[in-house]
Amino acid sequence: MNIKTIYPYWMTVVPFGIYLVFLILPSTVGFSMAFTNWNPYIEELRFTGFAAFEDMFSDSVYPTAITNTLLFAVVTSVLKVGIGLVLALALNSALRTRNLLRTVYFFPAVLSPLVVGLLFSALFDGKNGFVNVQLVGWGLSPVSWFGQRVSANFVFIFSEIWRSTGYSMAILLAALQSIPAEYYEAAEMDGATAWIKFRDISLPYLVPAINLVLLTSLLFGFKIFDLVYIMTGGGPGYQTETISTLIMNQYGQDMYAQSTATNLVFSVVLVAFALMFQSYQKRSEAHL
């Protein structure tokens, strides 16, 4: 038996080719612009070495943006996986209304971040927002949600969890359902409790899916842009900036090379993170 003819590489040529040509090639070309004087006004492109990278180390906005980004990515990922898992388990049961409930919980994932951003900026509006109107109705004082760093970050995190916990639920649900039923039947015959079944069968089989959800949530979280941009634009002041809003601000001010440079450094860090995550993933999935 020859592994080379059973799983031939030619089957991957077209998919891999599309990927390299339409994503990796333009991205690489794009990143090389970080070492030039690129902006919309130039007459000729010149190599400028690392000049475009200087800003990053002098600008005092970066620490705030990095903290906000990390906080958002970690908190949303943990909660998305946690709540998603609980929902997936609950909705994998024999509940009569489970189909309807699955749709309800998944629904927000259908909405684009743009739409969710608009919706939550209206809901949490300081003056007429639904949330504050309710708070006042209950005799509490209204909160200036977007007026301070802590509460604004809370709204971002809340809206992201609202938007995409359904997505983690869907993936975990698919993973739960691809576990052969015989495993559970066998365990039941041995008199296993629900907890034992979860710990010894479900969880080990869920590890790859959990890892996938965790990795994509973290990467999405690190790159968070739309929600913040729509709700606060990084304000008040610079208190809610994230790394991606900074990159976008630089681009918006026509500092193309600087923006690309920031993006390059950021991407390198993310790649390093993703690779580290993969090595963890290999270890955690070794039993499969």
Binding site: I24, P26, F31, L215
Partner: peptide, 26 residues
């Protein structure tokens, strides 16, 4: 080894941003 390298390259795609101008030129 080859398949591992390819998989790693694909992981990079989770990070690689869409770059408008080079894509349009391509």
């Amino acid at each position: 080894r080859t398949s591992n390298v390819m998989m790693t390259l694909i992981t990079l795609g989770l990070v690689a941003p869409f770059t408008a101008l080079p894509t349009i030129l391509l």
